[in-house]
């Protein structure tokens, strides 16, 4: 890990933001079609993140909010990371309502909603991001981190001693609803240098 790789200047931050802006737009388009509603898009937040700040970074969420979360690893072209999707408990009735699905109370059904949403948002966002920098990501099977847990308790200290990661945070909101979807793309510090090279290539084109 070189210190140079961990430098994130304004120009690069801006580019990451724009790449994700396009990628998240495509993901939102698919989810909007699935739910038949409009999804309000934010300006994505790009940061270098220390491991201790992971839970803290989810700024849109209250510490006491109960959330359900899915994470999914991805890798390709020596770039790797994880995508995280967090849904607050308030989201499920909205989702179930929009999808016209019954028996909202059951856990199995919630899990189905959670996984379907994760498939769309994570899958489309990663695909959109990868296409722009001309790479292809393979996704691991998604994993449920927890259901109805407090945000604080969600991230057990990981066994892999990572120090820093590039974090891109997108908070989707459903129009006229309380529901929020937190999508977090985390890239390993080793990936940053490779990503920056890909971006330099985009700048020269």
């Amino acid at each position: 890990m070189t210190s140079q790789a961990l430098d994130l200047n304004e120009e690069y931050r801006d580019i990451y933001q724009e790449l994700v802006n396009v990628a998240m737009g495509r993901a939102a388009d698919l989810l909007a079609r699935l739910l038949d509603t409009y999804i309000i898009l934010p300006v994505p937040k790009v940061n270098l993140l220390a491991r201790t700040e992971l839970a803290m970074t989810l700024a849109a969420l209250d510490k006491n909010d109960r959330v359900s979360a899915v994470c999914q690893g991805f890798s390709g072209d020596r770039i790797s990371g994880e995508a995280l999707l967090l849904l607050t408990d308030a989201t499920f009735p909205d989702l179930a309502h929009l999808l016209g699905s019954e028996s909202t109370g059951s856990r199995g059904n919630e899990l189905e909603l959670l996984m379907d949403t994760a498939n769309v948002l994570i899958g489309a966002c990663l695909k959109g991001f990868a296409e722009q920098i001309d790479v292809e990501f393979a996704q691991s099977l998604p994993e449920v981190l927890g259901q109805h847990r407090k945000v604080d308790g969600l991230f057990d200290q990981p066994a892999i001693p990572w120090e820093q990661a590039l974090a891109i945070e997108v908070t989707y909101r459903l129009e006229n609803k309380e529901s929020t979807f937190e999508l977090l793309l985390l890239f390993t510090s080793e990936s940053i240098e490779i990503l920056n090279n890909k971006i330099n290539f985009l700048l020269e084109e």
Binding site: G25, R26, D29, A32, Y38, L41
Partner: peptide
Amino acid sequence: GDIQPEAMQRVKKLGAMEFIRK
């Protein structure tokens, strides 16, 4: 980058001439 059908309709209604996706 927001290419939702509703986004396109809204901007057309607000008088935009064309909508191009990023």
